[in-house]
Design a protein around this nucleic acid. Structure first.
Length: 186
DNA sequence: GGAACGATTGCT
DNA sequence: GCAATCGTTCCC
């Protein structure tokens, strides 16, 4: 697979639900010491900024959420339960603090098949806290789209693990490719 | 300074 | 069902 190049910042500088939807079927690429790891994004969740009680940014601007409040097209990576990392892409204009969580990949190149779930995919891709704030227009960690649009059926469901967030818990902000075997369980 | 907890995962 | 494990947040 040649010619994979980063999506432009304008791709991320749009409504977060639109970006989440459009990220399905794109390719996450990470160069690890010369080895190009590639996975197709098959499951995501949208987090809609400070008013979204499930979003980290709902607690306002803190040292951790600084990246979320910044411009679009940057990686927001955090440690969860002291064990796993989760990868988000920041969306919408600076200050909106919205993001899309990448929840599952279909392995394409140099990946194990344990890429279903946000923590497992970060492990397989070699993504950790060093990538927090990383520009996704850079050459070593980025997201690319194929030239041709693939036919796809997108399913919307409530997000995983956000039962504490009141009315936000029920909103259908988790999106995945119907029937794809790498979509996470639950 | 310290307690509580989490956008998860895997083992019992 | 529940433990692992530690950074972040919040409250002394």
């Amino acid at each position: 697979m040649t010619g994979l190049s980063p999506l432009p910042r304008a791709f991320y500088d749009r409504d977060t639900v639109d970006v989440a939807h459009d990220l399905l079927g794109t390719y996450l690429v990470h160069d690890v010491a010369g080895e190009e790891r590639v996975g197709k994004i098959v499951e995501v969740e949208a987090y809609l900024g400070e008013t979204d009680l499930a979003a980290h940014s709902s607690r306002g601007l803190t040292p951790r959420t600084r990246i979320l409040f910044g411009p679009p097209g940057f990686a927001y990576v955090y440690l969860i339960y002291g064990i796993h990392f989760c990868l988000n892409v920041v969306t919408e204009r600076e200050g909106n603090a919205c993001a899309v969580l990448v929840r599952a990949l279909e392995p394409v190149r140099n990946l194990s098949d344990r890429t279903s779930g946000p923590g497992l995919l970060c492990r397989a891709m070699g993504i950790d806290l060093r990538h927090n704030g990383h520009d996704l227009e850079s050459a070593d960690l980025f997201i690319a789209a194929l030239d041709e649009e693939q036919p796809r059926q997108v399913v919307a469901r409530p997000r995983i693990g956000v039962a504490y967030s009141g009315i936000w818990a029920a909103k259908p902000l988790r999106f995945y490719l119907e029937g794809n075997p790498y979509v996470s369980k639950k």
